[in-house]
Design a protein around this nucleic acid. Structure first.
Lengths: 177, 177
DNA sequence: AAAGCATAGGTGATATGTCACGCAATGCCG
DNA sequence: CGGCATTGCGTGACATATCACCTATGCTTT
């Protein structure tokens, strides 16, 4: 719906975005905004989960053994470690996961999907996927699925390439400055 | 990065997403996550603005007279009114905007861009647009810009069509149940 | 083994976002 | 004019997210 003071004169060299780009950007922003909002709403009301909760559960469910160290989880879902730390603590209180130190490396905290957590996820998944299909794919002409994938994959590849940091890790300069 | 327990067997009838859809969805999620994160980071560190701040300022800057009622602003940027209310209060404390009751309808609060707010926005815009170009458009093959726009616009149109509510308004049943 | 850096997390403060209500100003109708 | 529903907002409580630090382990190097 916004983030588009990005428009202006089609100044070719560096200034703003050209007409076509503006159009793409606006469309992207609108979809992103609304989609996130609706996914949150749906999960919250149907399954008493937030979208972030769902992301965590999903990541754990496909992880080997249904368990993952905090850092791995963070990398997987693209969060800062600290956020994961806070979040899993809250989820643990709801018995969706449980955390405990690893036997090998005692710095590591392993987050593990509880049976209840798995049940909740399995109950929530169909509805979520359904929403995604209705909101996203039902309106997407089949012949545009390919191009869309290509486009987004190109964008992502480029983001990573010039990325400041690979994933959004919280990083600190090597003990100086 | 996640939100993709959406994969599984390519069950054609209703269950999950098929292979191509999974691919598109994964690409979308990755881009969305990372892009939002980076935009926030960049604005925050370069201009001491959050992405939401930027959205508000942008909306006001193009509004007629640099001012808008809360509800209009909310609709414009796709927020709940309550969120706008809280947010503009905080922004007012930083002298980015100022709020005041409308002369005509005294229920209405008009949010107005302050001179300082405009300056900050104008200072921030180039950097933001630049980031968007670098992160999003630099990696996007020109011949895919059109298809991407079409795809996202179709998706958006469909979302709106079957949308529960047009924009994310907070709605209450007409005084009953 | 001691020094020193690196790695994995946790924490507290503060900024944000959401929900459920509450209240006042308006608009209608009879 | 006297209700009374509607519209536009603000608020408080609570859930989340981010930032700047702090600690405990582990690893390497002498």
């Amino acid at each position: 719906m916004s983030r588009n003071a990005d428009g202006g004169a089609p100044t070719p060299e560096g200034g703003w975005l050209d007409g076509d780009q503006q159009r793409a950007w606006l469309a992207y922003i609108r979809v992103q905004l609304r989609l996130t909002y609706e996914m949150n709403r749906q999960l919250q009301s149907d399954s008493d989960l937030s979208l972030p909760d769902y992301d965590v559960l999903t990541a754990l469910s496909v992880a080997d053994g249904g368990l993952m160290p905090i850092t791995a989880l963070a990398a997987q879902i693209g969060w800062e470690r600290s956020r994961v730390s806070h979040h899993v603590r809250r989820m643990a209180a709801r018995d969706l996961v449980n955390c405990g130190p690893s036997a090998n490396d005692r710095r590591v905290t392993e987050v593990r999907l509880t049976p209840h957590g798995r049940k909740v996820l399995e109950a929530a998944a169909p509805g979520h996927v359904d929403l995604v299909r209705r909101l996203f794919f039902d309106g997407l002409p089949p012949e545009l699925v390919g191009p869309l994938s290509q486009a987004l994959e190109s964008v992502y590849a480029n983001m990573i390439a010039q990325g400041t940091l690979p994933p959004p890790v919280d990083w600190r300069p090597p003990r100086g400055e």
